[in-house]
Design a protein around this nucleic acid. Structure first.
Length: 419
RNA sequence: GUGGGCGUCGCCUAGUGGUCUAAGGCGCCAGGUUGUGGCCCUGGAGAUCGAGGGUUCGAAUCCCUCCGUCCACCCCA
């Protein structure tokens, strides 16, 4: 016996029983994105690898250890999309979208690939819904995209999400802050965990969200970025908060919120559920005013977010939120003898053409077995064709809920079902 | 990539060195007479106990390696 294949590590099958959850998230997303004037874009599953190295940042974990990189037969270095923003910005540039009214409002729903260690709610192939508003720096756009994501969660009925908000400045003020942060940490290095010693050199912002107990007291005393923002960034942040208050969206100022992608400037935010472990951030995003330029375009501001569909579905299930009923046939067509077979096959076909979901018995099974099957599928009616029906050009239509049944001419079955 | 928990039929679970050529429930399939479901009854298929190696007279049960999964990190949605 040969080995059974399994889905590769970190990948998952979305089975029919799960589809109602996915349908619901898709429906809410598409509708509300449309409501906010966002239009859907699809980009390829793979891109030139260097797009991500340039866009996301050469030294980020995503690029250094999580990208699926491969060479195609023509020798090109390609990468399976590890995040959604850089490709959308590439498309913005490639298709001259700066000629459209700004900002350009886009949303997407696509698979994302990261070679990570899998956990619940974390997959090597997962699906992200995201939006990008490109071409306008005003804080109202920051508030708009946050509200958009908030409304999607609200529509889905997700409870207990907290919006964490922070500003990590821009090239004017960030160096000043990093200097202050390094200064603060300089005499505390021996109290830190090993990771943080490395962070101090490489990526001091990351010192702020270390999870180690021993680092917490040091973090607690660290200067908050908001005290070091330049006037323009401080003003932007204040206006964003004011807009959020205008539309009734509560938030938690979290001076320790930093993001792992290099392109973020000013606004960063995350939606975190109350429970569900440390890997549970369900949606996150921020402003990336330098990204388009980094990718070779003119200086163009942008902001966006991404949210993990698998994590949303996980939370929907955790909250036992009801989703739509799974689809079931209205009519199950059963037959008694082999000579009634083609008649029942035709009846099922006719019913479907009338828009009635119909399934016909397959194989050689007793009528009893067929009826069991009809019940198991949750059909509303069983249409039975036996000798008598065959002779009369009719079918016995049985309502499964109460067992009421009568013989109906074949031509009238659809009408009777729809009554 | 690091550390830890777990891994028995499709699903849930019993069994922790011999009575296990592995038990039960759900689900699946078939019957309960002669054209019919749901309840009930009966029967059946389905697991070499994640894989490989070792210890032992003997292993699902102990050890090692690998794989998978879950948790905490790294990092991220």
């Amino acid at each position: 016996m040969t080995k059974l294949y399994k889905a590769p590590r970190g990948t998952t099958d979305v089975l029919p029983d799960d589809q109602p959850y996915w349908d619901r998230v898709w429906e809410a997303s598409a509708r509300i994105c449309g409501l906010f004037g966002y239009r859907r874009i699809e980009t390829p599953v793979f891109e030139e690898a260097s797009l991500f190295a340039r866009g996301v940042g050469e030294v980020t974990d995503i690029v250094q250890k999580e990208m699926y990189v491969f060479q195609d037969r023509g020798g090109q270095q390609l990468a399976l999309r590890p995040e959604g923003t850089a490709p959308v910005c590439r498309a913005y540039l490639e298709h001259g979208m700066h000629n459209l009214p700004q900002p350009v409002r886009l949303w997407y729903w696509c698979p994302i690939f990261r070679y990570d260690r899998p956990q619940a709610g974390r997959y090597r192939q997962h699906t992200q819904l995201g939006c990008e508003a490109i071409g306008e720096a005003d804080a109202s756009v920051d508030a708009e995209v946050i509200e958009l994501l908030f409304r999607i969660y609200e529509e889905l009925g997700l409870q207990g999400l907290t919006l964490h908000l922070n500003s990590i400045g821009d090239p004017t003020c960030r160096p000043r802050y990093l200097e202050a942060l390094r200064g603060y940490y300089a005499d505390k290095l021996k109290r830190l965990c090993n990771d943080c010693e490395a962070r101090y050199q490489r990526n001091p912002l990351r010192l702020l969200d270390c999870k180690q107990d021993r680092c917490q007291p040091v973090i607690a005393g660290a200067p908050p970025f908001t005290d070091y923002l330049c006037d323009a960034c401080a003003d932007h942040f204040a206006r964003l908060r004011s807009y959020l208050e205008d539309v009734g969206i509560g938030y938690l100022l979290n001076p320790r919120l930093v993001r792992g992608l290099d392109y973020y400037t000013r606004t960063v935010f995350e939606f975190q559920p109350q429970e569900g472990g440390a890997q549970s951030t369900v949606g996150a995003g921020g402003r990336y005013d330098g990204l388009i330029e980094e990718l070779g375009g003119r200086s163009t501001p942008g902001i966006g977010w991404a949210t993990g569909i698998e994590r949303i579905v996980l939370n929907l299930k955790r909250q036992e939120l009801a989703v739509g009923e799974p689809p079931r046939p209205r009519v199950f067509v059963a037959f008694q003898t082999a000579d009634a077979r083609s008649q029942s096959f035709r009846l099922a076909s006719d019913l479907r053409r009338e828009g009635i979901a119909a399934v016909v018995a397959a194989g050689e099974r007793s009528l009893k077995a067929q009826m069991r099957h009809a019940d198991a599928l949750g059909a509303e009616y069983a249409a039975i064709i036996g000798k008598r029906e065959l002779a009369d050009g009719a079918a016995t239509l049985r309502r499964l809920a109460d067992g009421h049944q009568e013989m109906v001419p074949l031509a009238d079955v659809a009408g009777r079902v729809n009554q």
